[in-house]
């Protein structure tokens, strides 16, 4: 039912960007878990636009990430702009979001933007201390890099320095 509307919603979601990393769409991030469209008899305000109720489930990246509230609002605004009025945005915590859900296209865009994309999570998501992760410099592609700080300017990033080209860069840490 409503496959065409559902397809349109997915296309619209591609236009909603992460406010902190604006090259990534919410689909690249892998935070959209579900899109449901159902018919509704209630016409939208103003009488124009699709007669559909849209329910979107997203999952938060980090518990305290302020971008999540902005993302929910941006999704809502994007749909309103296209005439949808009956919109529900739900948050789902389980299964917990992981950087493994980021698309390959998303990782490519991140790197082009100057942020090292996340390594596969099994490599590093542990409580073991003083482990050095092989993170590739997004500029010169060297693996000869070092950690500056495990926490960066946003919850999802840590700070690295390339020991070859000497540039400091952000790493979207595995989660």
């Amino acid at each position: 039912m409503n496959t065409s509307i559902e397809e349109q919603i997915w296309l619209l979601l591609e236009e909603v960007k992460d406010p902190e990393v604006p090259v990534l769409s919410v689909l690249d991030l892998g935070i959209v878990r579900d899109v449901k469209v159902s018919d509704t008899e209630v016409p939208p305000l103003g009488g124009e636009g699709p007669k559909a109720a849209v329910s979107i489930t997203i999952t938060p990246t980090y518990s305290g990430c302020p971008a999540m509230d902005v993302i929910s609002m941006d999704i809502r605004l994007k749909l309103i702009e296209k005439g949808y009025r009956n919109i529900t945005i739900k948050q789902s915590l389980s299964p917990a979001w992981t950087t493994d859900w980021m698309t390959e296209e998303g990782k490519r865009k991140l790197k082009a933007y100057g942020i090292a994309p996340p390594n596969p999570k099994q490599q590093f998501c542990t409580t073991d201390m003083f482990r050095e992760e092989a993170v590739q410099c997004p500029r010169c592609n060297s693996y000869h890099t070092e950690l500056i700080s495990e926490f960066g300017s946003t919850a999802c990033k840590s700070m690295y320095r390339c020991l070859d080209c000497k540039e400091a860069f952000d790493y979207f840490k595995c989660h």
């Binding site: 938060p60 789902s92 915590l93 389980s94 917990a96 979001w97 992981t98």
Partner: peptide, 8 residues
């Protein structure tokens, strides 16, 4: 679910 999310 909260525990699973927070644990990471």
């Amino acid at each position: 679910a909260i525990a699973e999310k927070s644990l990471k």
